[in-house]
């Protein structure tokens, strides 16, 4: 098991390969559809510092405010990453992001972006909402909450030992592509 903490250098990221299990700690940022659209169309600066050498998490959490008025994550598994395919490579380059956490993997444009910018795709366990929320130790701040709503806002969070697997690395390899090719071949055989 590899342990990594944000900010992550390009050198550390280039050492990772498809199939590596990683426990991730440090500050990361949730962003999904509305956030990615905004980052490309308006390139806002408010999120620049939090994203530099950090990780974007494709997640729309369930949150609550505790008795002291602080935000807490209640359930926070990954959402499907494929929807961000049109934006992701540009977001990585623009904001110098070192990793994406999501589920389902991403396409060729992102794969090329990971290779070019020195970043990886980490796969979290879809549906493991409670377990991952327990790895979120603190909510630092939230952006665009009013405008985008809870699931779509940028949540800047501190995580500890968030379990993920590298399924797309910075060397052009993708587990998703391999499984797709293999299973498609088996399906063709089954259908005769």
């Amino acid at each position: 098991m590899i342990k990594l903490k944000t900010p992550i250098s390009e050198e550390e990221i280039r050492k990772l390969h498809v199939g590596d299990s990683v426990l991730l700690s440090g500050v990361i940022v949730t962003a999904r559809d509305a956030a990615h659209k905004l980052m490309i169309e308006e390139r806002p600066d408010f999120i620049r510092e939090a994203l530099k050498e950090s990780v974007i998490y494709h997640c729309g959490p369930v949150v609550k405010k505790d008795e002291n008025g602080n935000w807490q994550f209640v359930s926070a598994g990954p959402t499907t990453s494929a929807r961000e395919e049109p934006y992701q490579a540009d977001v990585i380059e623009e904001y110098k992001v070192r990793g994406i956490i999501g589920k389902g993997g991403m396409g060729p444009k992102t794969a090329a972006g990971l290779q070019k910018s020195g970043a990886v795709y980490f796969h979290a366990v879809g549906g493991a909402g409670t377990l991952i929320a327990n790895a979120v130790k603190k909510v630092r701040t939230v952006h665009k909450l009013e405008e985008f709503g809870t699931p779509e806002a940028f949540w800047v969070i501190e995580v500890e030992d968030f379990p993920v697997v590298v399924t797309m690395d910075s060397h052009g390899k993708s587990m998703h592509k391999e499984i797709l090719e293999k299973s498609t071949k088996i399906a063709e055989e089954l259908m005769g």
Partner: peptide, 20 residues
């Protein structure tokens, strides 16, 4: 991970998946 998550969610009475 899934099984651990299912047990935690039941115990804490929190959504097993954030997409309810």
């Amino acid at each position: 991970t899934i099984i651990e998550n299912v047990e935690m969610a039941r115990k804490q009475s929190t959504p097993m998946c954030q997409d309810t």
